[in-house]
């Protein structure tokens, strides 16, 4: 029962955040000059009428907002400003699977190698290996995706001619290697540093010393005492990591010419496609909030101390 209440409580707690997100986007678009809610522009009468109907412009503001939220709940993000024949929902459902594939692969890669490298560094603390890992970790954090991606293309595609420089090609494995790697690298570096710091702290804690004093083997200590507390901060970093991967995928899709949602977003931003941009922001925002929520809830189950404190 208390578990159930905990989960429900967490989900209810996210609703105000979602509402604030939607309201922020809504009022920003309302305030935008030349936006769908701006009357001082010259559009063909039919377009104007369509817009008025689509956004219920003749209603009072609070009703407009309520109707917008109602439409969102039904998965209707409104018509696109630029792509006359498409709705924003259609554009999102074409682009998102590509982005999801890219992001999911990147986060798995970052998690696996990041925690592996970080653990190895922590177990060899203050060795040359450790310093090397930390140094390259700092480089990984410092070089942003959009610098790393062209450099990788320059080296692997143009220099070695080993991998394709761009294109989606139906999500073919070779075409996805460079985008996934350049998206994953900064997160991998961050997770490695996080894991290292956390494991060093755990290794020097009292319960590990006790376990050692009791004569348990290193392997037992590592697997049954050290690993779980080590990865707690990594689990809680998953939320911000997802957000970073989503923002990163915007540039990575642009660089490699992948037909993902991020690319539509940038095109929309450059073409001032207000409804598309707003739709993507709301969509990604909800996704990030939802993912944070899931991670938070999971965290409560992994570390019961959290649940008690709330």
């Amino acid at each position: 029962m208390s578990n159930f209440r905990f989960v429900i409580g967490r989900f209810l707690g996210a609703i105000p955040t979602l509402l604030i997100l939607i309201c922020l986007a809504f009022f920003l678009v309302k305030a935008a000059p030349g936006g769908p809610f701006d009357f001082e522009r010259s559009l063909p009468e039919e377009v104007e009428a369509n817009l008025r109907a689509a956004y219920n412009l003749d209603d009072p503001v609070y009703l407009q907002l309520a109707k917008y939220i109602g439409d969102l709940l039904q998965g209707d993000f409104g018509p696109s400003f630029q792509y006359r024949d498409y709705t924003v929902t259609e554009l999102i459902s074409t682009g998102f699977p590509v982005s999801l594939r890219l992001g999911f692969a990147a986060i798995l890669l970052a998690l696996f190698f990041g925690s592996l490298i970080g653990s190895v560094a922590a177990l060899n603390q203050n060795s040359k290996l450790d310093y090397g890992v930390m140094f390259f970790g700092m480089i990984g954090i410092s070089i942003p995706n959009f610098v790393m991606a062209p450099l990788l293309v320059l080296f692997f595609s143009i220099g070695l001619k080993a991998l394709p420089a761009g294109g989606y090609n139906g999500g073919d494995f070779y075409h996805m290697i460079l985008p996934v790697v350049s998206l994953a690298l900064p997160q991998m570096a961050y997770i490695a540093r996080l894991t290292r710091g956390s494991m060093i702290e755990v290794l020097s804690s009292n319960f590990v010393r006790t376990a050692k004093a009791q004569g348990l083997s290193t392997k037992t200590i590592l697997f049954s005492h050290v690993l779980k507390p080590t990865f707690l901060p990594v689990v809680s970093y998953l939320g911000p990591a997802t957000a970073a991967i989503i923002t990163g995928s915007v540039v990575v899709e642009q660089i490699f010419g992948l037909p993902g949602l991020g690319r539509y977003f940038v095109q929309g931003a450059l073409n001032r496609d207000y409804t598309l941009v707003m739709g993507v922001v709301v969509f990604y925002g909800c996704l990030i909030i939802l993912f944070n929520l899931i991670v938070d809830t999971l965290y409560g189950f992994i570390d019961p101390r959290i649940k008690q404190n709330r």
């Binding site: 986007a25 920003l28 678009v29 935008a32 000059p33 923002t247 931003a269 941009v277 922001v281």
Partner: peptide
């Protein structure tokens, strides 16, 4: 994303 929205608008 909000910074981008601001830039666009």
């Amino acid at each position: 994303f909000f910074v981008i929205l601001l830039m666009v608008f």
